[in-house]
């Protein structure tokens, strides 16, 4: 199962909130001049923050609770920037029942406007089940 593609944007304000939660001191994540001085073309999106893109993507399935994240893999192929528009899709790449629990691999991919893959995040989840809403 795969979601449709949705527009994804990380705003400067969201990056500021994320870096405050993370306790990051580097000014490149909050100050445009500092970012440009260090060779970035804008305020960069922190690497693992890409996972909040889920908020922009309507999944054609629902995972029954409780949902538990047991492993996470993230790959950053290109640095993303604040206030730029990307596209994101999510798919369930594999699932199986073991010990009366559903084990799922849920994969987020984010592409830039030139369709270059920027980020890939594979979440290894345990859930009560998958309820399919519709398929693409």
């Amino acid at each position: 199962m795969k979601s449709e593609s949705y527009a994804v944007c990380f705003t400067k304000e969201e990056i500021l909130r994320y870096t405050e939660l993370a306790g990051v001191k580097n000014p490149i994540f909050r100050n445009m001049e500092a970012a440009l001085e260090q060779g970035y073309k804008g305020i960069p999106v922190p690497p693992a923050m890409a996972m909040i893109a889920y908020r922009h993507i309507k999944l054609p399935w629902k995972l029954s609770e409780p949902v538990i994240l047991r492993k996470q893999e993230c790959r950053l192929y290109r640095i993303m920037y604040a206030d730029e528009i990307y596209t994101g899709t999510v798919k369930i790449s594999k699932h199986s029942f073991r010990h009366n629990k559903l084990f799922i691999l849920q994969e987020l991919e984010i592409f830039d406007q030139q369709n270059h893959l920027c980020f890939n995040g594979i979440s290894h989840l345990i859930a009560g089940g998958v309820i399919e809403k519709n398929t693409v």
């Binding site: 870096t19 939660l21 306790g23 990051v24 922190p46 690497p47 693992a48 640095i79």
Partner: peptide, 19 residues
């Protein structure tokens, strides 16, 4: 990541991470 990005320059943008 916040701690590592503050401590280690290479952790600003790690190519990949597994948890």
């Amino acid at each position: 990541w916040g701690i590592l990005a503050n401590e280690l320059e290479i952790m600003k943008f790690p190519a990949e991470f597994h948890l």
